[in-house]
Amino acid sequence: MVSSFSQQRWKTKHQPARADAFALERFTMQRISVALLAILLISLSSCGGQSKPSLTPSPKTPKEGGTLLIFAAASLTESFQEIGKAFTKANPGVEVTFNFAGANQLAQQITQGAPADIFASANQKQMNVVIESGQVVSGTAKVFAHNRLIIVTSKNNPLVSKDLKGLAKPGTKVVLGAKEVPFGQYALDFLAKAAKDKQFGKPYEAAVLKNVVSYENTVKGALTKVMLGEADAGIVYASDLTPEATAKVEKIAIPTSLNVIATYPIAVLKGSQQTESAQRFVDFVLSPEGQAILTKYGFAAK
């Protein structure tokens, strides 16, 4: 009763203004929709191929000595930052900046036109995506490193035995990568190999998969959960065990016969306006100095 009374009072007081506002609103809405339609048409027509060529710089003016933008897989974060510093020291005047993310995400960004000079992928598949889209300077794609999987378990965890069988013990909380990201697919490949191995067999693969509590989208995400003790075990890249991480987890090596070796390809991209500097960076990664840095961070050399 009281509430409707107060509302009634409110209404009568403000009614004229509201009626006016409604009329205006209708009018305004019409105008806005007309304007939006116009913009829509303009944007659509500009998509129709006329303005596209003008987006790419018509005559390629080489602008060497600027800043290289390198798209690199997240697992390369630490090693490439150090390589970047060493490269800048060896090549004064050339700055390098990085965009680290999942290789798949980077490949998407590049095919959608992100202005990168170099792409360093965590697997051949995503490099192929970029090559097929015609964005790679032909002949520049080269494998520069290998990576292998390793099992990590949380420290002081009585639940987990310190061998491969621990992953399959009922109740062990295991984190893997999502099958969409390379380290997740590699972990599944490792389990498939183990399933064919007499020592482990199909039940091992099934038991481990049953223990999975989360399919992470990044290696760092999986590692963090094991470091915090939230998960008991996880499968990550050997290169991800930074000194900080090593202090908080225990490692279990996966035998070479079962391990999956990840290949890391690197390439200069066509969109680059400084292909010469970009090529120099790629050469630097492949040089003994670059390879030494990669080895230091747990990668196997090319």
Partner: peptide, 27 residues
């Protein structure tokens, strides 16, 4: 969500998680 609940299809994978993971492969 992805940090506290993880990503497990059918259990903790909500729409935004599926969108993000999907962006990795199945656009």
């Amino acid at each position: 969500t992805i940090i506290f609940a993880g990503n497990f299809p059918g259990r903790t994978q909500t729409m935004p998680l599926a969108i993000y993971i999907g962006f990795e492969l199945e656009l």
